[in-house]
């Protein structure tokens, strides 16, 4: 049994229009996405803006309504209402922007204690102790509890966000671009720290990012999304060393190379990929420019290829 299983997930947003503002169509933000995550692993969800990666994450934590499909967490279906135990407390989210995701008018104590107050009935003192423990865990000083978010740097704020996310001892964390608003050196700090607490608490991550360099560093398995659908998924090696879909190839080719000597080589490679992309676009995408269904090319590696024949 998979730890988290997403089956044919669809999230559609209605487009309203016409004279009476009736639903005249739908934006298919997520259009049939399936994947599984094993406990303790980091699964990377990669795509460009508008690919539906964030919506997928938000649908799993319940911030977006699921139009169709099933999300099962440890065998329990998530979008069903009226459950005795709420599995959602096991699933928490870290947001992209540490500047806007923390309420500026609340003290750190209140920010971190908020999920505790929602789910656990603790006395004032117990609550304070828990927050102290959490702050220690994320490497912030205990005096921080009476401060406000603006008194912290970006990296520290993201730690506060993480402290809030791990307050209920979740098992799965959905991290939506957790470091893309941060400077390189701060990025390293947060990424290292995320890996540390993963080991410590046996956390599972769904890591959503557009930055392939970081995804490569963090993730065990990766799914590539384009216009709400999967174009390819597989292990890190499958995706980076043996990309099969033209879109993945283009994405991998676009990563800037840190070695200036390879510049020309890289540029040429990119042009080749671009030419291939343009020439074979119609082979890889249907009439609407959407990816086909996934087909397996190896045990771990799935690619969206048209059904031959």
């Amino acid at each position: 049994m998979a730890f988290l299983k997403v089956e044919d997930l669809k999230v559609h947003f209605p487009i309203r229009g016409g004279l009476f503002n009736r639903k005249i169509g739908a934006i298919k933000a997520v259009d049939g996405v399936s994947f599984e995550i094993e406990q303790g692993k980091t699964y990377g969800l990669v795509g460009e803006s508008g690919s539906g990666k964030t919506t997928t994450g938000r649908a799993i934590v319940g911030l977006n309504d699921i139009t169709e499909g099933k999300v099962t967490y440890e065998g329990d279906e998530l979008n069903k209402k009226g459950k005795a135990i709420d599995p959602r407390r096991d699933i928490q989210m870290i947001f992209q922007d540490p500047y806007s995701s923390l309420n500026p008018k609340k003290r750190v104590l209140d920010i971190i204690a908020e999920p505790l107050r929602n789910y656990e009935k603790l006395s004032r003192q117990e609550e304070k102790n828990r927050v102290h423990e959490l702050l220690e865990q994320v490497g912030l000083s205990p005096e921080s509890i009476l401060k406000y978010p603006h008194e912290f740097s970006g990296g520290q704020r993201q730690r506060i966000g993480v402290a809030r996310a791990i307050a209920l001892k979740p098992k799965l964390i959905i991290a939506d671009e957790p470091v893309s608003a941060l400077d390189v050196s701060v990025q390293a700090q947060v990424l290292n720290f995320m890996q540390d607490i993963q080991k410590e608490l046996n956390l599972t991550y769904l890591f959503i990012s557009h930055d392939l360099g970081i995804v490569k560093h963090m993730c065990d398995e990766i799914g590539i999304m384009y216009k709400g659908r999967y174009v390819e998924s597989g292990t890190k090696q499958d995706i980076f060393n043996n990309p099969q879909h033209i879109y993945t190839k283009r994405l991998v080719a676009a990563i800037p190379d840190i070695d200036p000597k390879k510049r020309e080589e890289k540029k040429q490679f990119r042009q080749e990929v671009q030419t291939e992309y343009e020439q074979s676009y119609n082979d890889y995408f249907d009439n609407e420019g959407l990816a086909y269904g996934l087909q397996s090319v190896s045990d771990t590696h799935l690619v969206a290829l048209p059904e031959k024949g």
Binding site: Q156, S185, Q187, A188, N192, G213, H217, I258
Partner: peptide
């Protein structure tokens, strides 16, 4: 700075962190 970037080869497990803040 160069050390704090995730590098091409995957040998490195930990990224370098510059102590303190700007």
């Amino acid at each position: 700075l160069l050390n704090s970037m995730p590098s091409e080869d995957e040998s490195q497990d930990k990224l370098h962190v510059i102590q303190g803040i700007v």
